[in-house]
Design a protein around this nucleic acid. Structure first.
Length: 808
RNA sequence: GCCCGGGUGGCGGAACGGAUUACGCGUCGGCCUUAGGAGCCGAUGGGGCGCAAGUCCCGUGUGGGUUCGAGUCCCACCCCGGGCACCA
């Protein structure tokens, strides 16, 4: 009994985990050199927002990537695995309003808490490279980039209908509006006409649609492609009767239907509306426009709303038919898409059809499936077909007619082929405090003047009153606002808006390579050794927002001559979301599941392993810790085996040797493909087999499983490594290799089927020939009984698997 | 409505067109124990026949199809999750 106790001390994560966490820091195990005798590998995981609420979702986001990064290290790579904080943001400011804590203080406190969580998680992060976006040393480069983009025409100030969240009292980017609601607080957003700063992401729309050479998940590519929403068609202009120069330009994807354009519709906010409306219609039109303006976006865009609209009294000329067509306004036409005006073809567009039906407008068929003319249509026909009643184009196929009409428009000088995108320019100004000040001074004489580079950073003033009302908080800080114009020296006012925090995260991966450099946003000499990022991981919820902005910023910086690559991230993988009882975890819902009690009870290694074992990482999970006992038992069994005395004497066990080899192969392949759950299963199987084994095969197998488990359970395996007399850290060891020949079993059970039914199993050497298997199967007494004298018509042999005999 | 995923034991989930359910949870039985909510060993899809060794039938959302053989491929449909949604 006492001997047993000496040999195997209890697995006690509570003592070994803190011990190794300290040891790794002391020995600098995770400090990455920029140059090593191994290939560099930049493994990046999306940095967190320091919200202060640590939940199990954080572990899910960080523990599996940490395992993959450690795996790369053991596989001979010099891995950069940095971490930092996306530290600007509205939550900090709301905390200031609610609890009277300065955002900076609140943020620092949360970052300290989260660093501690990362430590307790056992992550192999190089903290010397930490990047924190709310420090002036960081955000000055946001300002620097802003000015560079401004010089290049990639940043501009413009008036546009923007999304306004009345609760957060700020504008939002299109990407931050989910289903007509504010992404943050779920409040329905309003449309406001405002002058704001934009980044010209639309310039890169086509390039952003290209993913060649990128190893990114299909789902993310599809999401981004749909978001960009490229449509091919034509832009054509119709003149307005009695208003020379007031031509209506419109975009259509169906120029082939132009002979069926029996009316036109403008968005209510369209600039021409006021000019062309006839006096008789003026009052009604004004009412309609006001109503449309005041309607919440969510209300206006609700699908299947009945069509509304008003006739302006004006007519345009359909230059193809030569007819005069009435011009209407209706809120189903959006100012922000295309040109804010359409030619309405009720016969071939469902929306136009509904509108025409309601207001008694002409519906004229110009495309027909069978190429013949029909009477009245019951519904819009939106498919392709033969063109009818289309002047010289009659008889042409619609697919051909599209191009023909667009070309004809070009010939006549009234338009031509064109492409439109759903993607809008990135609105980056926010009427909030806790962000990067926009480095612009507004001068009464010189207008918007850039802050000179040598005056960067424009620092956020510390003393600000947080009332939560009244627009940009910075506007109420005279010491900040009042300045002089860099151009003329006269009194001027600083821009009081701050930048969207997605600006911060659009380029942080360049900062990690040398976060201290103060002469450039990136140390290019070091960056050349690491970039572009080899592997990026993060939540799928950022598929559009952050990942699209990040790609845009790389292209913009490339065009500024600052980067030498087109794409910032070569390989991307996402994790699914952890929910609790089907709902997203959040403080406001009060359903935040914290990791602490599990760490206390089972240790970080167990929780890490459980995170990876729950199911496929991409799928996420509904949090349910009931299975955590199983992985903990597994770790304890490995602990007991590996800390017991060795038993090298005795014969080898060939089957066990094969199982060890197969486990190495499976774990290696599974970690590469991020199938962490099956990798853990493979190690569990091996552990079960080792427990039944003996002798040197078992002993070597135990040594192997300690190595295989190292990226998953880093504390326990380092402890075992040392207890077993290993030098250095287990994390500095080479990943075990496998031999396909040994991994393959010598003998296999071959299934024999007769007419599709399992009738016998025979044992045959691996790699047996078809003939050998066939005759062995046919010789089986059970098979002969099943055949009952019938002669085989067909015998299918699948090597190393089965023999299927068919008599029918 | 459109575009992606996905429906497998009581549960989480495995499964190159080849023995359906690896691994784990749970449950049941046993051992150990003063005790066990610790540990170890074993069983565990449903149904029928049999004292038993066994054996037969049915099983991957539904209905068809291809194939010697389908969770896997094809067609139609149902349901669930996500995204987009009056985008011209």
């Amino acid at each position: 009994m006492t001997i047993e106790k000496e040999r195997t001390e209890r697995y006690d994560p509570a003592t070994i985990e803190p011990k190794w966490q300290e040891e790794w820091v002391r020995s600098g195990l995770h400090d990455t050199l920029d140059t090593a005798d191994k290939p560099n590998f930049y493994f990046l995981t999306m940095f967190p927002y320091p919200s202060g609420e640590i939940h199990v979702g954080h572990w899910y986001a960080f523990a599996p990537p940490d395992c993959a990064a450690r795996f790369m290290r053991m596989n001979g790579h010099n891995v950069l695995f940095p971490m930092g904080f996306d530290a600007f943001g509205i939550n900090a400011e709301n905390a200031a309003i609610d609890r009277k804590i300065h955002p900076a203080v609140w943020t620092e406190k949360n970052m300290a808490h989260m660093r501690d969580q990362f430590r307790r998680m056992g992550t192999a992060i190089d903290w010397r490279r930490e990047v924190i976006t709310c420090y002036p040393e960081y955000y000055r480069w946001n300002q620097w980039m802003f000015l560079k983009l401004y010089e290049k025409g990639l940043a501009y100030r413009g008036e546009a209908p923007v999304n306004w969240c009345p609760r957060d009292e700020t504008v939002l980017a299109n990407e931050q509006v989910i289903g007509g609601r504010c992404e943050r607080c779920d409040t329905p957003v309003e449309k406001r006409q405002m002058t704001q700063w934009f980044y010209r992401i639309t310039k890169y729309a086509d390039e952003l649609l290209r993913f060649e050479g990128l190893d990114w998940p299909e789902r993310v590519r599809v999401l981004q492609t749909n978001w960009i929403g490229r449509s091919e068609g034509a832009e054509i202009t119709f003149p307005v009767e009695g208003h020379p120069g007031a031509d209506i330009k419109f975009f259509t994807t169906r120029p082939d239907t132009i002979y069926g354009a029996t009316f036109m519709v403008l968005a209510p906010e369209h600039p021409l509306v006021e000019r062309i409306t006839t006096p008789a219609q003026r009052e009604q039109v004004r009412k309609y426009v006001d109503h449309a303006r005041n309607m919440a976006e969510i209300e206006r865009t609700t699908a299947e709303r009945e069509k509304t609209g008003i006739f302006t009294g004006a007519y345009a000329k359909n230059v193809f038919t030569g007819e005069r067509v009435p011009i209407w306004i209706a809120d189903y036409v959006l100012l922000a898409y295309g040109t804010g005006a359409i030619m309405a073809v009720p016969a071939h567009d469902e929306r136009d059809f509904a509108f025409a039906k309601k207001f008694g407008l002409e519906i004229r068929e110009v495309i027909s499936e069978d190429g013949k003319e029909h009477g009245a249509l019951d519904a819009a026909y939106v498919g392709e077909g033969g063109m009818v009643r289309s002047g010289p184009f009659t008889g042409t196929r619609s697919e051909v007619g599209k191009k023909a009409i667009a070309d004809e428009a070009r010939k006549r000088g009234i338009g031509g082929p064109s492409v439109t995108y759903r993607l809008r320019d990135w609105l980056i100004s926010r009427q909030r405090y806790w962000g990067t000040p926009i480095p612009i001074v507004h001068c009464p004489t010189d207008g918007a003047v850039p802050v000179p580079y040598d005056q960067l950073p424009v620092e956020l003033p510390r003393d600000v009153e947080f009332t939560g009302r009244g627009g940009s908080p910075l506007a109420h800080v005279p010491a900040f606002v009042n300045t002089t114009c860099p151009k003329c020296g006269k009194p001027a006012r600083r821009d009081t808006d701050t930048m969207d925090t997605f600006v911060d995260s659009s380029w942080y991966m360049y900062r990690y390579v040398d976060p201290k450099i103060d002469t450039a946003f990136m140390n290019a000499a070091i960056g050349k050794k690491w970039l572009p990022v080899h592997q990026y991981t993060g939540g799928v919820e950022h598929a559009i927002l952050h990942l699209l902005y990040m790609r845009f910023m790389a292209k913009a910086l490339r065009d500024l001559g600052e980067l030498w690559f087109d794409e910032p991230v070569t390989r991307f993988r996402y994790q699914g979301t952890i929910v609790f009882k089907g709902r997203k975890m959040s403080k406001s819902r009060g359903n935040v599941q914290t990791p602490d009690e599990y760490v206390k009870r089972y240790g970080a290694d167990t929780l890490r392993l459980f995170m990876m074992f729950m199911g496929p990482w991409v799928d996420g999970a509904d949090w349910d810790a009931s299975g955590i006992e199983g992985v903990h038992r597994f770790l304890r069994r490995v602990w007991d085996m590996a800390s017991a005395d060795r038993q090298p004497a005795g014969p080898r066990e060939a089957e066990l040797d094969r199982k060890v080899q197969r486990a190495i192969k499976r774990v290696t392949e599974d970690v590469r493909t991020y199938s962490f759950n099956t990798a853990v299963a493979a190690m569990m199987e091996l552990s079960n087999a080792l427990q039944k084994g003996a002798g040197p095969s078992r002993d070597e197998g135990i040594a192997t499983i300690v190595l295989l488990l190292a990226p998953f359970a880093p504390h326990m395996t380092d402890e075992l490594w040392h207890k077993r007399g290993g030098q250095g850290s287990v994390h500095q060891q080479r990943w075990p290799t496998y031999d396909e020949l040994i991994a393959a079993p010598a003998e296999l059970t071959i299934v024999v089927q007769v007419n599709g039914k399992l009738r016998d199993r025979i044992v045959a050497p691996a790699g047996s020939s078809e003939d050998a298997l066939r005759s062995a199967a046919l010789a089986s007494p059970k098979v002969r009984a099943a055949l009952a004298g019938a002669s085989p018509k067909k015998v299918i042999v699948v090597a190393d698997r089965l023999v299927s005999i068919v008599t029918r």
